[in-house]
């Protein structure tokens, strides 16, 4: 299989971006840490560092299709292998970022013990009450955090890739139609329907959230992780349908 050179190529591509990203994050954290040490009243809280990572990997995925696609087609790679390469890249990068996030959290907590006003925390702690989480500070808790981040990153990356692939396959009229109608539907259409059905839409979303998160987060992080992975798989499948006949455009 020609997967190895494909994955190697994809990883090399974003190596610099990822490193730059983390250097910036760490620099900001160090900066804020020093501020909290110097000023008695200053507080810095990085609760839910995954949010930033999710943003980053989403944007990176949004630019992951066109250029690599052209390069890989030039080098005789099938679309099947291109998509597989993207999946493996996503898994690798999500895994790496999840682990790095955990390391940052751990180092951050050392900082917290020095300055109580400096807080670094994972999203997990924000969303779920501690009774649904393994005992903090122990290995299972760390693994849970890593796995949680991993699932979120994967889902968000899959979404970004799907969106950029969708836009590539669409012709201009369709792009305009989608770019207008989707936000319209979300921000105007849905509230309208909600009004008309006397809160029917809100009820629907409520039920779905309860299904995923449980009431007051009672389902534990596992259901979100499962939901994220299911979404990733679905988006992968849709991406395959889009990519398998994707022409090389000029």
């Amino acid at each position: 299989m020609y997967l190895k050179p494909v994955v190697k190529y994809r990883l090399c591509d974003y190596k610099r971006a990822i490193i730059t990203f983390y250097i910036i994050i760490i620099a900001i954290m160090i900066g804020f840490f020093s501020i909290t040490i110097s000023y008695d009243t200053a507080t810095a809280s990085f609760a839910g560092i995954e949010m930033i990572g999710m943003n980053f990997i989403f944007i990176v995925s949004l630019t992951s299709f066109k250029e690599p696609f052209r390069m890989l087609i030039q080098n005789g790679i099938s679309r099947k292998t291109i998509l597989l390469g993207q999946i493996i890249w996503t898994i690798c990068v999500s895994a790496i970022m999840s682990v790095v996030d955990k390391v940052i959290c751990l180092v951050g907590s050392i900082g917290s013990s020095i300055s109580g006003r400096f807080i670094v925390g994972s999203l997990l702690d924000q969303v779920y009450p501690s009774k649904f989480l393994p005992e903090p500070g122990r290995i299972p808790a760390h693994l849970m955090a890593i796995a949680f981040s991993f699932c979120l990153y994967t889902a968000v990356a899959a979404l970004g890739y799907f969106i950029t692939l969708l836009y590539y396959r669409m012709n201009t009229p369709m792009k305009v139609a989608v770019s207008i109608s989707v936000p319209c539907f979300l921000f105007i259409g849905l509230p309208l329907i909600d009004n008309m059905t006397n809160g029917g839409v809100s009820y629907f979303f409520d039920r779905v959230s309860q299904l995923i998160f449980g009431v007051d987060g009672s389902n534990g992080p596992l259901s979100v992780m499962a939901f994220a992975l299911v979404c990733s798989a679905l988006l992968c499948g849709l991406s395959w349908l889009l990519i398998k006949k994707a022409p090389v455009k000029n």
Binding site: Y2, G76, S78, K80
Partner: peptide, 11 residues
């Protein structure tokens, strides 16, 4: 969609 066949061709 045949990687092996494509390997024999350079365009």
């Amino acid at each position: 969609e045949n990687d092996r066949a494509m390997r024999k061709i350079y365009m």
